[in-house]
Design a protein around this nucleic acid. Structure first.
Lengths: 220, 220
DNA sequence: GGGGACTATAATGCATGCATTAAAATTTCG
DNA sequence: CGAAATTTTAATGCATGCATTATAGTCCCC
């Protein structure tokens, strides 16, 4: 039975709340309030807050408390670009090394789920599957440092991905492109894998930028 | 006059100490000892430790204290690769946008300093200048998220760069390659900038890997 | 009624105390 | 003499208290 630290508990709970937009934007919550809310003292809470701030998820404003960090248009664009850079590296590397049949199967499964979501117009399902695809692409890279960084930013990207979802056209091209990347990986063609994925990410970044005004973010 | 927080002070001091290898590897230092050492209580110290752990610079081992995180051969290789990926992105981007004369001048200056260091066999000076060059390459990228991540890893890379320094052949090729990258950036040739820098980083990663046994690290 | 000074409230940053518990030291026993 | 058991030591995780100070509210004066 694992020892569960108060600080870890606070971190997990707050992280979950922040990501799922539990706290309204631009609202600050004081430490005593949070501590009382979580049923612990300020000490372990503070540790959690410091970590969350370090993750770039919140801001700690002296005398005001914690505030969920807003993503500006510029942030969104920058995160998309950084993620593009890292995912392309992953795509290239995966095509260079031989993926096992099992690993390729997981990528195929994610794409299949995306297809199902698209066909049944279930955009929630599609989003989950798309997220899963990108996660796999990253996690199959053997560079643990790269994986850690990229997953952190993928999570942030997911936040605005969900915001933009209602305004997107049916993302047919995503499924097609992802399938093409996997195909390039399967046949061991790093150059194609990179080219296709980079083009895809560029298109997505542009689309996102155009959509920003519709979900209340100034273009970056 | 800015307010100096104890926690920030502790963070800065400890960060500096860790990076400059003030603490011997595999040695743990307890919190009371550190707190006493820094002349503060455990509370702000702990906040600093949590941040440093999050930076991946130290480990917090319950009941033992803080330990500087050792870099394995694998870590070193992975960090080099990740940095290569990010720096190449920077090189490409810098060549795409027009750098101002002032910005180009700073890159030139760093290379000039590297040349001076090399000519006078002053490897400390050379290292500083080389570090400065990479830092500039990154900082001139306008993507703040990418810059933050890359600088963090550049700092880690600097740690083993210093370890490897005594065993390296005179790094003539570094100066030449860096100059070539700047030249490609100057004439706005992204493809060349990437190609040259990528080749350079690959060579360096290989060299580093070969040198590992000499500075007491198992090959990654 | 409005603006400025003053008071009151309350949040933060830090110190300290304490219970728990892991590691070390000591003792006991085969 | 060596190993297990027991005592001792001490570090952590957390709670709490306090001084400082920023914010908000109040009062006074115009």
């Amino acid at each position: 039975m694992k020892k569960l630290l108060q600080a870890d508990k606070a971190y997990d709970i707050l992280r979950e709340r922040v990501i799922s937009a539990h706290y309204p934007p631009a609202v600050t919550v004081s430490e005593p309030e949070l501590a009382n809310d979580l049923g612990m003292s300020r000490t372990p809470l503070r540790e959690a807050l410091v970590r969350l701030e370090h993750d770039g998820l919140i801001e700690l404003i002296p005398r005001r408390g914690m505030r969920v960090k807003e993503l500006s248009g510029r942030d969104i664009r920058e995160i998309s670009e950084l993620l593009a850079c890292l995912e392309c590296e992953a795509a290239e590397r995966l095509a260079s090394r031989r993926l096992s049949a099992e690993e390729l199967g997981r990528l195929d499964a994610a794409i299949a789920a995306m297809d199902e979501g698209l066909e049944s117009d279930d955009m929630v399902k599609w989003s989950q599957a798309d997220y899963q695809f990108h996660r796999l692409l990253i996690e199959l890279h053997t560079n643990r440092h790269l994986v850690e960084v990229a997953l952190g930013y993928l999570e942030k990207a997911h936040r605005f991905r969900l915001l933009a979802a209602p305004f997107r056209a049916r993302p047919v091209y995503s499924n097609v492109n992802h399938a093409a990347v996997v195909e390039a990986i399967r046949r061991g063609d790093p150059q194609s894998a990179v080219d296709i994925h980079r083009a895809h990410k560029r298109r997505w970044t542009r689309e996102l930028n155009d959509l920003m005004p519709q979900f209340g973010v100034e273009r970056g």
